[in-house]
Design a protein around this nucleic acid. Structure first.
Length: 420
DNA sequence: TCATCTAGCACCTTTGAAATGT
DNA sequence: AACATTTCAAAGGTGCTAGATG
């Protein structure tokens, strides 16, 4: 939590490369309130914060234009999934193997993002017995304002570089004095690459002492359900009040749905400084009765009020296009046994432990699953500026319903409604 | 010309199998 | 034989940077 806050205050950047890079800080969450014997899946997807592309100019971020077309929205599923609630609650859940890439043709199931765009990870807890047949009946979404980041191919802000070097054990070689002879040897007279001009000087030689990359905090915080756009830029010194900038640039497409719609159902965990003033909303009603299902960032203990649980719309793609806010809210349920027949489309970490669980998708449920709620009509979605089967996407060879391998499947969005 | 991206590098940690000890 | 601990090489994660790209 502390580390995330440090990065957030500077303006978190995440390196994305063709081959994929891990996130740092990594996402690590603590969950409480699950039914110990019920099985759950843990997932993460990434949603754009807005409709703009950014650039780093004179030590600050500013809007550079309209965002690139949406990429297929992939979802990372925690390799332990499915596991009983007791397992998830036993210790903080780490998403350390989650990788980001800018390779739109990626076949490894990494999360595909555009460079120089802003994103926010979003966590999902899905109650389901297994990965094959999971029909998304009950799930919850959580997000954390301090995890917003800008995807980059090279660090722009030298403060971020320094923070990463100081805190990431894999970068130790860059903070220890005199160990990187290669850099010293090249240190003269070369052209500087993007952030190079600013990164030229070596990071502080002083050991920050921040060896601890696991930010273990256990503070109480309330989980809130996101009811409006998140003012992520507040307290974000390197951002040119992008909200103002945003206004100056004509947005051809509507505000991102994440802010517009999906967020209305998303539970957001505020930072310690903000949670006290938070008021929980649920369809306009202020809820007070605390309940159970919680997810907290970085072992950051959280407590939610009434949990917002949405059910997956059945056979009604129109509901999707009309906004997630229309989905019904159910009480925290003991899950009735269900006849799971849906399809799971997800990215799974290749280094995970899928063996014991078998494939994480069901190639035989394609028609039903996609037809049911993964594949709305194009006309409905195009107007929303996002389609899981966009032109770009189809050119990757994953069009239609003929899929023969995991790589193909991993490219489908798990939660398409959240990506408009 | 410039901003951005790519690929390969040196340096480092992590991982897990094999070896060794109890 | 079973388990715990240590060793060590391979795998993989870092930021850096020259050159490529558009």
């Amino acid at each position: 939590m502390d580390l995330w806050m440090q990065f957030h205050q500077v303006g978190t950047e995440m390196i994305i490369t063709k081959s994929g890079r891990r996130m740092f800080p990594q996402c690590k969450v603590k969950v409480t309130g699950l039914i110990p014997y019920a099985k759950y899946l843990m997932l993460v997807d990434f949603v754009p914060m807005d409709n703009f592309r950014y650039k780093w100019n004179k030590d600050q971020w500013e809007v550079a234009g309209k965002a690139e077309p949406q990429l297929p929205c992939r979802t990372y599923i925690h390799p332990d999934s499915p596991a009983p609630g007791s397992h998830w609650m036993k210790e903080p859940v780490s998403f350390q193997k989650l990788k980001l890439t800018n390779n739109t043709l990626d076949q490894h199931g990494h999360i595909i993002l555009h460079s120089m765009h802003r994103y926010k990870p979003r966590f999902h807890i899905v109650q389901a017995d297994d990965l094959f047949s999971a029909r998304w009946s009950i799930f919850q979404m959580f997000s954390f304002p301090e995890t917003v980041f800008t995807s980059v191919t090279a660090y722009q802000n030298e403060q971020i570089t320094k923070l990463k070097i100081d805190n990431n054990p894999f970068a130790k070689g860059f903070r220890e004095h005199g160990k990187n002879t290669r850099r010293e040897g090249r240190a003269k007279g070369q052209k500087l690459s993007p952030a190079k001009g600013q990164k030229r000087k070596r990071p502080e030689e002083t050991e920050s002492g921040a060896e601890e990359s696991d930010f273990v905090k256990d503070e109480n915080v309330e989980v809130k359900e996101e009811s409006n756009s998140i003012p992520v830029s507040s307290g974000y010194p390197f951002w040119v009040s992008e909200q103002n900038s945003s206004h100056s640039i004509p947005a051809a497409s509507p505000a991102p749905a994440d802010q517009r719609e999906a967020t209305a159902r998303e539970q957001q965990v505020p930072t310690p400084s903000s949670y006290q003033t938070y008021r929980f909303h649920d369809n306009g009603d202020t809820q007070q009765a605390p309940t159970r299902d919680i997810l907290a960032l970085n072992e950051f203990r959280a407590r939610s009020h009434r949990v917002d649980i949405a059910t997956v719309p059945e056979q009604d793609s129109k509901q999707l296009s009309e906004g997630f806010t229309n989905l019904p809210t159910l009480p925290p349920p003991p899950p009735p046994p269900q006849d799971y027949t849906g399809v799971v489309n997800m990215a799974v970490d290749s280094t995970g432990k899928p063996g014991a669980r078998g494939p994480m998708y069901n190639p035989y449920s394609t028609e039903q699953g996609l037809g049911q709620w993964m594949v709305p009509s194009h006309s409905q979605y195009r107007a929303m500026s996002y389609s899981p089967f966009s032109t770009d996407y189809n050119t990757q060879g994953a069009s239609g319903h003929a899929h023969g391998n995991m790589a193909d499947w991993s490219q489908y969005p798990l939660f398409p409604y959240a990506c408009w």
